[in-house]
């Protein structure tokens, strides 16, 4: 115990049985440990142990996929916190938003981050799509991952749109009314769409009715959008993100392909 000075406390910690049982590999920054840092960690092991220097650069990947994913994480986290304060019923929803603004500690910044984060995610997913287009990353063997990407794009829109109704203010219900009115014009299954009269579509049995749970945006719509927004769409998005990342690894990162000497 005589040589236990403040200086070698870190040393003692990283060589202790407890530390080694958690991280399993040594702490010293040598090549072997750097590889193990990736492969031995459940969160990091979706990453390859090596990436080409060319593909690592921001000017190649724009960080857009990473940022989109990170925004999704922020939105999940802030969204769960918001769920503690928000009740999706017509008498309460709007006043819960007011409480978040004025009563709940840090409620306002919580709500703002969730709202702006959603806008940013929609934007970043389009930016990421543009980058994978311009680097030809959709070409074989990555065709299917591009298709998965388009599905992700679609569900990002739906996730954002379903959340738009929840504050239950004028902006919310009228934006959703505009959106849902498009649904009533769906060919065949929307009552104002082409061919719909041929199969007996009416205002109270078409696809818009199913979406809204009524003929106008009301309490049933609020509940439907809440469940879709907090449960269905996030789960679907998570599943496709898992597939997406898995495929980036399986198909290989396109930034690794070009050889420049």
């Amino acid at each position: 115990m005589a040589n236990l000075s403040l200086k070698n406390v870190p040393q003692v910690i990283v060589e202790s049985q407890v530390w080694k049982s958690i991280f399993r590999h040594g702490y010293t920054m040598n090549r072997r440990n750097r590889l193990l840092a990736i492969t031995n960690n459940v969160f990091y092991h979706i990453l390859p142990t090596k990436i080409s220097r060319y593909g690592m650069r921001m000017r190649f990947h724009w960080g857009a996929g990473i940022i989109t994913f990170y925004l999704f994480l922020i939105l999940t986290f802030t969204g769960v916190l918001l769920m503690f304060y928000y009740v999706p019923t017509v008498p309460r929803a709007y006043y819960d938003m007011k409480d978040l603004q004025h009563v709940v500690p840090f409620g306002n910044i919580l709500r703002n981050m969730h709202r702006y984060g959603a806008h940013a995610m929609v934007f970043m997913v389009m930016v990421h799509m543009a980058r994978t287009f311009y680097t030809s990353s959709y070409k074989p063997p990555r065709e299917f991952n591009w298709v998965v990407g388009v599905i992700l794009l679609n569900f990002t829109f739906l996730l954002s749109f379903s959340g738009y109704l929840l504050p239950w203010d004028q902006l919310a219900i009228w934006a959703v009314t505009v959106g849902a009115n498009m649904a009533r014009a769906t060919p065949l299954i929307g009552h104002e769409g082409p061919f719909a009269n041929l199969i007996g579509m009416k205002v109270n049995n078409d696809v818009r009715f199913a979406l809204l749970g009524g003929t106008t945006v009301g309490s049933a719509t609020l509940l439907r959008f809440y469940v879709l927004h907090c449960i269905a769409f996030p789960i679907i998005l998570t599943i496709f993100i898992v597939v997406h990342f898995w495929r980036v690894r399986r198909d290989g990162y396109s930034g690794d392909v070009p050889v420049r000497e």
Binding site: R31, R34, L35, Y44, L47, P48, K50, I51, S52, M56
Partner: peptide
């Protein structure tokens, strides 16, 4: 040698 370790560079 075009490759770089993910940890810590990426």
């Amino acid at each position: 040698e075009r490759f770089e370790l993910t940890w810590p560079y990426f």
